[in-house]
């Protein structure tokens, strides 16, 4: 009944050939994108016997949470068998300070570049942006040396510093572009009102910029959580983040492969960014679109 009621903007009938093709294409693509998530979930809920005889796309006959428990607390990396939980907590301990420091530094730098330019500030900004295009491999070893000189190599704080450094170009760009778009007269009014560099930053700019902080935060949470390379290079095995530990668990050559445990572990590792993604929705999109398009 409702389907045939004309709808203001769309004069086409619901089942026009155009719509069938359009939605058909969308659904087919959706299947490609959803398939891995589905496979991960069903595999992680089966036991090994069922996996061996069955089909990876079939739903579990008997749901078991044993693989999840095992992945979290018993899976082995090398000789350690205390599961992914250790990697999870390492990642949390890396994430929180990295997030706070990298976002603060980027916001402050963006503020300088947008509101308090000085002679040469644009040049430094240009250099910083170039940094975004330097392959990490070029800087891997120099950073090892810098961290060693600072006595931070192998520690969590070393990794925090590395994340802050590599996050700077894109986040500074993001903040700068956002702050530049704030009305300039507001900034002038605040100066006439006697607010200085910090006063304007904390009292005027930050309260107006919540969305961009969220956006930058989202980029940082997913980026830091998903990092693999820096985790491998700059931390010792006992500090390995979750991604590194996950890879070690799944790709370890010893022992019988437990695919259900592997998929549970994989899902567990993907959970944090997925939760961030699903809850932030539009802001996530806005962040990547803003960071990319305005560039």
């Amino acid at each position: 009944m409702t389907a045939v009621t004309p709808r203001g903007a769309k004069p086409q009938k619901a089942l026009s050939p155009r719509n069938i093709m359009l939605y058909g294409a969308l659904v087919i693509f959706s299947l490609y994108y959803l398939l891995p998530l589905y496979v991960m979930i069903v595999t992680s809920l089966k036991d090994m016997a069922e996996i061996r005889v069955g089909n990876i796309f079939s739903a579990p006959v008997e749901i078991t949470f044993q693989p999840w428990v095992k992945a979290w607390s018993q899976a082995c990396t090398g000789i350690n068998c205390d599961g992914l939980s250790r990697g999870f907590w390492n990642s949390v301990r890396i994430l929180i300070p990295s997030l706070i420091i990298s976002v603060s530094v980027a916001a402050l730098t963006g503020y300088v570049l947008a509101c308090w330019r000085f002679k040469g500030s644009e040049v430094f900004f240009g250099i910083l942006l170039l940094g975004a295009f330097i392959p990490y491999q070029v800087l891997l070893y120099p950073l090892v040396i810098i961290l060693r000189e600072l006595g931070l190599f192998g520690s969590l704080w070393g990794l925090v510093l590395v994340h802050t450094v590599f996050a700077m170009p894109i986040n500074v760009l993001l903040f700068r572009n956002y702050f530049v778009a704030l009305p300039e007269e507001l900034f002038k009014a605040a100066r006439v009102d006697g607010a200085g560099f910090w006063g304007i930053f904390f009292r005027i700019v930050i309260p107006m910029s919540l969305p961009i902080f969220v956006v930058s935060g989202i980029i940082q949470v997913t980026g830091i959580w998903n990092d693999f390379l820096f985790g491998v290079v700059y931390t010792r095995p006992e500090n390995y983040p979750m991604t590194v530990q996950l890879n070690n668990i799944v790709n370890s050559v010893q022992g019988v492969k437990e695919y259900n445990v592997n998929m549970a572990a994989t899902l567990l590792t993907g959970l944090v960014p997925l939760v961030v993604y699903f809850f932030s929705g539009k802001l996530f999109i806005r962040g990547i679109a803003a960071g990319a398009v305005k560039g």
């Binding site: 009305p183 007269e185 507001l186 002038k188 009014a189 605040a190 006439v192 009292r203 005027i204 309260p207 107006m208």
Partner: peptide, 13 residues
């Protein structure tokens, strides 16, 4: 001095 701007420039928050 006191200044008044075209876009009002009131602090929105």
């Amino acid at each position: 001095i006191g200044m008044v701007f075209q876009s009002y420039a009131l602090y929105p928050q």
